[in-house]
């Protein structure tokens, strides 16, 4: 089983998601401070990458999930501080959505498709496999700041997927321990259970609903972040000048 670390995690390599990264990047330095204050990267995650739940259900999956990423700036006019003490963790750190942590989500998701996708695993095991990844992602994320709702949504999804698996589990099918991304020498996941054949279609529909709901929560969360960080995106240094220029709000 893989061990995830908190920082600098580069676990799963290339993914078979259609991961179209970096729609555009806006980097700017605030003169006099020398610190990057805006780093906006729009990451497009295509959930349809590999018909990973059910080809028939694929068209109704949320087509894309956008994560707006930002680095927290400091001392920028109009920037908003976190709302309360509860927004900080024990070390006094507030987590905005940021490259490093969001990278983790996207990479784990990419790994999920490889490990649980049609090339690696029978369809009847797929829901439990996805359940495992949602649970893993929920554990990975900081439990403060803007990540809290994301973490909670993923944990809730994992719990609901687990309930679906429990209700429909096929006791006659042996659990499997798929290797990460199907790699021949890769670590294995914990035991993953199968769904009864006659319950498969309904269980897939239920799983789809859970994932759709989760995607909506993630989308809301990143949208909120976009609003919170709006000043960073909308103020950019004028080239070769001490000035900043403003976009319309």
């Amino acid at each position: 089983m893989s061990k995830f670390k908190n920082r600098g995690h580069r676990p799963l390599g290339a993914c078979s998601f259609l991961l179209a990264c970096v729609s555009w990047t806006l980097l700017c330095a605030v003169p006099g401070q020398g610190t990057p204050v805006a780093n906006r990267i729009v990451i497009e995650l295509n959930w349809l990458g590999g018909n990973w739940i059910d080809p028939d259900l694929a068209p109704v999956f949320p087509e894309r999930l956008y994560a707006i990423q930002n680095r927290p700036g400091s001392g920028v006019a109009g920037s908003q501080a976190p709302n309360s003490k509860n927004d900080y963790n024990r070390k006094g750190k507030y987590y905005f959505l940021n490259d490093s942590d969001t990278d983790k989500i996207t990479k784990v998701l990419a790994g999920a498709l490889k490990t649980c996708g049609p090339d690696a695993l029978e369809r009847r095991y797929r829901i439990d496999c996805v359940r495992y990844y949602f649970w893993q992602m929920s554990r990975e994320l900081p439990d403060t700041g803007e990540y809290l709702p994301v973490k909670q949504a993923l944990a809730k999804a994992a719990t609901e997927l687990e309930a679906i698996v429990k209700r429909n589990r096929d006791p006659s099918a042996a659990p499997v321990r798929p290797r990460l991304k199907g790699g021949s020498l890769a670590p294995r996941l914990p035991p993953i259970h199968a769904i009864r054949p006659e319950a498969e279609a309904r269980a897939m529909r239920e799983a789809q609903a859970v994932i759709e709901e989760t995607a909506t929560v993630l989308l809301r969360s990143t949208e909120s972040s976009q609003r919170r960080m709006i000043h960073f995106q909308q103020i950019a240094a004028a080239v070769g000048s001490t000035k900043v220029l403003l976009r319309s709000s």
Partner: peptide
């Protein structure tokens, strides 16, 4: 009434 303008003039007039 733009708050960005207001804040920038107060905080970074030497721009």
């Amino acid at each position: 009434g733009n708050s960005d303008v207001f804040n920038l003039l107060l905080e970074r007039p030497k721009m």
